[in-house]
């Protein structure tokens, strides 16, 4: 059993599939996130794939502020992801609402709606920081899968 658990945990760390959700970003953070996938940074080296489908994703990357309208969507997307999963909030907006936090329709940071595991600051966050956030998220995975992961 020990071997299989080890294998699974390795596989989880080396095959993180991302779902990138733009809540209400100014697109600054989005551009930086997508830049990670270009040949310059090429995160597919580490098995990272941007799947664009919550049902296949392991890591939810959220950029931008949460507002009254898209909080439902954010919740649904989070719920549709199978366990084990982690959430990475990106940019000042994702952390706290950023420069939009005073706006009447803004709820605030991502953690107002769903539990967030990793916070990546910046306005916009740099690609290196985002990659670093994903790597941190992978460590969270290990902690999580020890706790409640479904396992085999």
């Amino acid at each position: 059993m020990g071997l299989i658990d080890k294998l699974i945990s390795t596989a989880r760390r080396r095959s993180p599939w991302l779902l990138h959700f733009d809540c209400g970003s100014c697109n600054g953070c989005d551009i930086e996130t997508l830049a990670c996938l270009t040949p310059v940074y090429d995160v597919e080296r580490f098995g990272v794939v941007n799947v664009g489908n919550p049902k296949h994703a392991d890591i939810l990357l959220v950029t931008g502020t949460v507002n009254l309208r898209n909080r439902e969507v954010l919740t649904v997307l989070f719920e549709q992801m199978p366990e084990p999963k982690v959430v990475v909030a990106i940019g000042a907006c994702g952390l706290s609402g950023g420069i939009f936090r005073e706006a009447p329709n803004v709820v605030g940071g991502v953690d107002k709606v769903i539990p967030v595991d990793v916070y990546v600051p910046g306005c916009p966050a740099r690609p290196e920081a985002i990659i670093d956030g994903v790597v941190l998220a992978l460590e969270k995975f290990r902690e999580k899968s020890k706790g409640k992961g479904e396992g085999k």
Binding site: P54, K55, Q80
Partner: peptide
Amino acid sequence: KGTAYMSGAN
């Protein structure tokens, strides 16, 4: 149980 993918607008 899951819900169908409708771009989150379920």
